[in-house]
Nucleic acid binder design. Structure first.
Lengths: 346, 346
DNA sequence: ACGCGCCATGACAGCGCTGTCATGGCGGCC
DNA sequence: GGCCGCCATGACAGCGCTGTCATGGCGCGT
């Protein structure tokens, strides 16, 4: 009835509880023969450590917190999966924590979150990972964390992170559109408080520049990382006197909104207008036509970050790591219609 | 530096730790004046209870587990939001737990999951909640849980649950299509091990029957609750010698797949074929045309279940509660094209 | 043969909280 | 006025585990 405890195992194996603890935690300095005896007892009794007791007693609770502030369901699920995969393998627990990255008390909220359950550390995803002032305070509270950042190169700022080169990927997408022959390319920007938005815009502008195409302010439209802003933004672009022949949405959800806007305007994608997204979320595969996008494996990125965090908690030195999203060309992009056969919006 | 403890507060307020504990846990039998003194000390020191210690010491850890086995990102996020909303308000913690509902050791996995962290109880979502044999064992281990079920009425089987009338909602959707004038209505069925699939099929058949339309085996296609099965299933339906004029997907993702299949076949939705989904996930709003569907508020349903669970843990008697998804008509359904003007698949 | 040091193990004291039971004070009742 | 009972509070012993330090045995060097 009552769960088996360390003492039960110790009794059965004829050793002290401490020795069982040593075996469970895989410490050395237990004679192989003793270890065997203990392991047998553990198996016979089907012993499972009580995580609360372990956490209360030890320096930390073998639990990490995954912190996010994101409206994107696919993205969140992918991140959770990555974190869970790492945790399962390394025998850690996971606590999820949606939050408001712009709250003034962010650092204190996270500190309390960590302290209440004696979390071992936090994985901070964008845009929480970009609130530098808050993170400085968090570091001062001695809460270990690993950030996931949108950056072209290793920031080497003494705080461990996994960085994703959004600029480069946005450049690749824009270049793809340019190579198809598009010149007027609309850009639907994502939330301003995501550094990734700026990086992606930079990639877009850099590519235009390298291809000798001046960027036009009227083709860049602000919005958030949500479907409706993609829809509205695309509408505005398509309503221009000279509408773009291609639209690059800052993520797949925005692009899906743009796709819906084009279709609702009676346009055929990709023949009348090309649309590209970013992220390779199921969105981009679950629309018709499927979206050209940049594959960004949030699950793998977060898994990596989680492993780094756990390694760091264990006292290891860990090197930062970079990821490069990869261009995925699907059916939503094609060369622009020749001018002569250009179809007007109905 | 070190987090403030009960003893610190007790010292400051000039009372015993136990009294502080009483105040924190809102137990009565503390003189108002004492309570005030303690509350002031708590505020001054910014005290936060350590959840591990509380959980280790008490009978349970003020933490509930949310158990799911589901590939649907939107659904999972909605459920998590609901559970988090209830937990935040009632000062509980949440642990998430994806699992394989068909694993033979399900009950034991869940027991261990619960025991390791001394969880207060579990919220079991479909289809985990439908593994009756496993649940009997789980109950025998004295793990409290609340199920979320697909059922037309309260099962009154002594185990608390929240039930959702999928049959009724599927009936409403089918009736809606019939009323538009559709007679050949395809049905894309979701995963066999979800009871909801059977219930929705029942609603579909019942409606057909009530409207005097015989159901045809070739119009019902098996699949799982994923986009690709919706796509493939719809393809098969549209390839029939006499294709359906409307397709009812067992959830929005299936319907989105069907929508893509129709569009990829050059058909216009809803003019050439109507498509309806189920769930009202963002999917149904993020496609073009947006999907007619049945609104099922997973967040609210899970929030309700979480509150029931917590009430039950607190020793209360709780009544089961039913939800009725509600028909939401959007642009993906319309009357069938008159026979004369029927358009052939290209 | 003696002593030193190291390795395997154990005893013990918490970690921060709650359950249980004891205590003391005070109002009410006969 | 004395006794009972109840209410507010506190002392204390864990919850199940780990950190620290003590211990005892054994190999090895001289």
């Amino acid at each position: 009835m009552k769960p088996v405890t360390l003492d039960d195992v110790a009794m059965r194996a004829g050793v002290s509880a401490k020795t069982v603890s040593r075996v469970v935690n895989d410490e050395r300095s237990v004679r192989p023969q003793t270890r065997q005896r203990v392991l047998r007892a553990i198996e016979q009794l089907d012993y499972r450590p009580n995580l609360l007791a372990r956490g209360l007693s030890g320096a930390h609770a073998y639990t990490i917190g995954l912190v996010y502030d994101n409206p994107n369901a696919y993205y969140i699920i992918a991140m959770q999966q990555g974190a869970l995969a790492a945790c399962d393998e390394l025998n850690f627990n996971l606590q999820i924590r949606p939050c408001n990255s712009r709250s003034p008390g962010l650092a204190e909220e996270l500190r309390d979150f960590a302290n209440r359950s004696r979390l071992s550390g936090l994985v901070l995803t964008t845009p929480v990972s970009e609130r530098t002032a808050a993170l400085r305070r968090l570091a001062a509270y001695r809460i270990p964390f690993v950030r996931i950042l949108s950056a072209a190169r290793d920031p080497r700022d003494g705080s461990p992170c996994v960085y994703v080169d959004d600029r480069d990927a946005a450049y690749a997408i824009t270049a793809h559109l340019l190579q198809l022959g598009h010149v007027r390319i609309g850009f639907l920007r994502g939330g301003r408080h995501h550094h990734a938005s700026a990086e992606r815009l930079r990639g877009y502008k850099d590519a235009l520049h390298d291809y000798g195409v001046p960027w036009r302010r009227e083709l860049v439209i602000d919005g958030d990382y949500v479907f409706d802003d993609g829809f509205r933004g695309a509408r505005r672009l398509l309503d221009l006197a000279e509408p773009p022949t291609a639209i690059f949405g800052c993520n797949d959800e925005i692009a899906a909104g743009a796709l819906a806007a084009a279709q609702s305007a009676g346009l055929q994608v990709p023949y009348d207008v090309s649309i590209a997204g970013f992220e390779d979320s199921p969105f981009s595969r679950h629309s018709w036509p499927p979206l050209t996008t940049a594959r960004q494996r949030a699950d793998i990125i977060v898994e990596r970050a989680t492993r780094m965090l756990i390694a760091r908690i264990g006292g290891g030195e860990v090197a930062n790591e970079g990821f490069n999203p990869e261009l995925v060309v699907r059916g939503s992009t094609a060369p622009p219609r020749p001018k002569s056969r250009q179809r007007r919006r109905r």
